[in-house]
């Protein structure tokens, strides 16, 4: 256990370094984009004097390295700063959006993960049957289309024609939990279809891989039923790769939803990031990117820890 603790500490330190580098790269990239905040904000209305007034008031006339260092020091003290555009506290702005994004990811995960894993197990159990081929074909079809196309198909069928779910996810804080779930249904289903194939196929492959091992052969010779063999004997040993793919897809559910957010008008982090990049609102861009990067770092760490716990051999790489 202490070995795991040491690894976690090491990885967290490396994660912090990663975040620092990410922030540096993001800052540099936004600086490289043409136009600055004042120009983008005023659009066609920008005159040299108003741009200068903007820059003076927001401290944008300082050289880039000074602005970066200032931002970094505030950040280290836990102060995300304020949005350049409307002076709102970024922590507050981000808080609501992050909640929404996590909520969508959670709803999608609750539908997708159990479904994908059980489909994967069933597909392994009935390998090469019509069921196996059908599930494979369907999930692969769903994943082959771009997300927004899947979203439009769902809107047309479930939203417009059958009128089961609202076509846009107009959610706000005052709504009750189930109302929120109801309004989040279509984007969550879209996300489900997008990640279903990965997880399902990985589960199937991991289990099938093991089915050729001698101990499975032994179990079969003892006369165990195929279902029992797979659930009790194969699955525990296949957990490590399954956990990996599940957790990485969880990360995708959080950071990869920009298109889905746009199609369903879902007020999550992705939309905030896109708008902020367009206006060069650097503090908001930085904050969003750090949240995304941290999500990846932490979930990757979680994936490793869980895999190791399911298979301690991984702690000692040869």
């Amino acid at each position: 256990m202490s070995q795991i603790g040491k690894m976690v500490a090491q990885r967290l330190a490396l994660g912090l370094l990663t975040l620092f580098i990410v922030s540096l790269i993001i800052f540099g990239c936004v600086e490289l984009l043409p136009g600055n905040f004042a120009q983008e904000m005023l659009g066609r209305g920008a005159t040299p004097e108003t741009v200068a007034a903007f820059n003076r008031e927001l401290g944008l006339d300082l050289p880039p390295h000074e602005r970066y260092v200032n931002w970094l020091f505030d950040m280290l003290q836990g102060d995300f700063g304020r949005s350049l555009a409307n002076q709102r506290e970024i922590s507050e702005l981000l808080g609501i959006r992050l909640q929404n994004t996590l909520f969508l990811a959670a709803v999608a995960a609750v539908i997708a993960i159990p479904l994908a894993v059980s489909l994967g197990i069933l597909a392994a159990l009935y390998r090469d049957s019509i069921f196996d081929r059908g599930v494979n074909a369907m999930t692969l079809t769903a994943i082959s289309f771009p997300e927004f196309f899947v979203a439009y198909v769902l809107i047309i069928v479930l939203g417009v024609t059958l009128n089961l779910f609202p076509a846009i996810s107009n959610i706000s804080e005052e709504l009750g939990f189930w109302e929120k779930v109801y309004r989040t249904a279509l984007p969550a289903l879209t996300m489900t279809l997008v990640i279903l194939a990965y997880v399902m196929r990985m589960t199937r492959a991991a289990i099938i891989n093991l089915l050729a091992s001698p101990y499975i052969e032994m179990a079969r010779l003892k006369g165990l039923r195929p279902g029992r063999i797979i659930l009790k004997h194969a699955l525990p040993n296949a957990l490590a790769p399954i956990i990996n793919v599940v957790v990485l897809n969880l990360a995708y559910l959080v950071v990869g939803v920009v298109l889905v957010e746009v199609v369903f008008v879902y007020p999550g982090l992705g939309q905030l990031l896109v708008d902020s990049v367009a206006k060069r609102d650097i503090p908001v861009v930085q904050a969003c990117s750090l949240v995304f990067a941290a999500t990846y770092v932490l979930l990757n760490l979680l994936a490793d820890v869980l895999s190791i716990m399911s298979n301690p051999r991984l702690l000692h790489p040869r």
Partner: peptide
């Protein structure tokens, strides 16, 4: 007053009575 940037989403919202 809702911002619905995507024109397809906007049209769907109107035809399903969301707006």
């Amino acid at each position: 007053f809702l911002t619905i940037g995507d024109v397809v989403a906007r049209t769907n919202a109107l035809s399903t009575g969301e707006i």
